[in-house]
């Protein structure tokens, strides 16, 4: 039997599709460039653009402040690192507590529910103030570094969010999986650990990564406690120079830091969507 070769009909269709896609790429490119040009022109041609450029986009000040802000960002990264670990542990515990059944576990379930309700509702800034100024007030002899207090506050808030994401994932695992595991003689805890949680995590990976991206920028809020992070470093320079460029520098650094994770999240989501849709055209 001869190997299959695409027919004239199919070759023609492929040519048409290629032409159509080339045309839409071109249209998108031209319209994006045109829009950007108009937006830039509007900003640049405004009467006081010069002073705005000096205050926000001053290259000299950007260069001078960059090392200090970068040093501050290192603190943000460390806070992010430890907060991620704490959130992973606490959120898993909370989600597990909320998934417990039976009247015996009512207190644990109620505690976990109350916690997630409270910390999902509270603005992060208020939690930062309460933890950052409240805890040190309890005992003025001991000095806890503000970065540590900031880490605690961020962890408290994000544990509640992540716990809810994990719980949704655990509930999305079909009950028959739990029955199959228990039928093999696995205990409730073993079933959660080996069967439910691994499958739940797969289901919520994009949502978790999204929360991580969100936390990446929210660690910048610890500056309100006085921790010298990227935002605070920028503020110090701003107060010396009366120029806002350092904030732009810090902002760009945060964007740069989150960029790989954002792209990775997109890629993972796209891959999962592809697997579920099995390559349809819709």
């Amino acid at each position: 039997m001869e190997a299959w070769q695409p027919s004239e009909l199919e070759l023609d269709r492929r040519l048409q599709r290629r032409r159509a896609s080339r045309r839409s790429v071109l249209v998108a490119l031209v319209s994006t460039v045109a829009f950007a040009a108009v937006a830039a022109w509007l900003v640049v041609s405004s009467p006081d653009w010069e002073s705005v450029r000096n205050t926000f986009f001053n290259l000299e000040i950007a260069k001078d402040s960059f090392p200090k802000i970068l040093e501050g960002l290192w603190l943000n990264i460390r806070v992010l690192f430890f907060a991620t670990i704490v959130v992973a542990v606490v959120a898993t515990l909370l989600a597990t507590m909320r998934s417990l059944r039976g009247p015996v576990f009512f207190p644990l379930r109620a505690l976990a529910t109350g916690y997630t309700d409270l910390f999902r509702g509270l603005p992060v800034l208020i939690v930062l103030y309460l933890v950052g100024f409240g805890i040190p007030g309890l005992n003025t002899e001991v000095r806890i570094p503000v970065a540590v207090l900031g880490t605690i506050a961020i962890s408290l808030c994000y544990s509640a969010y992540v716990a809810e994401v994990l719980r949704a994932g655990m509930e999305a695992v079909h009950p028959s999986q739990r029955i199959a595991a228990r039928s093999l003689g696995l205990s409730h805890a073993q079933t959660l650990r080996m069967v439910v949680i691994p499958q739940a995590l797969r289901k919520v990976v994009p949502a978790l990564m999204n929360d991580f991206v969100s936390m990446q920028k929210d660690v910048g809020l610890i500056s309100v406690l006085g921790a010298v992070d990227a935002v605070r470093a920028a503020q110090i320079v701003q107060q010396q120079t009366y120029n806002f460029t350092p904030y732009v520098v810090a902002g760009l650094l945060f964007v740069a830091m989150s960029f790989p994770m954002i792209r990775l999240t997109d890629a993972v989501s796209a891959r999962m969507a592809k697997r579920e849709q099995q390559g349809g055209t819709v």
Partner: peptide, 20 residues
């Protein structure tokens, strides 16, 4: 109950293999 279930083998209509 875990010890009892470990003594009985069960096969389900929908297989219920662990997909991961």
């Amino acid at each position: 109950v875990d010890k009892v279930r470990a003594r009985i083998g069960v096969v389900f209509q929908h297989f219920n293999l662990f997909p991961h």
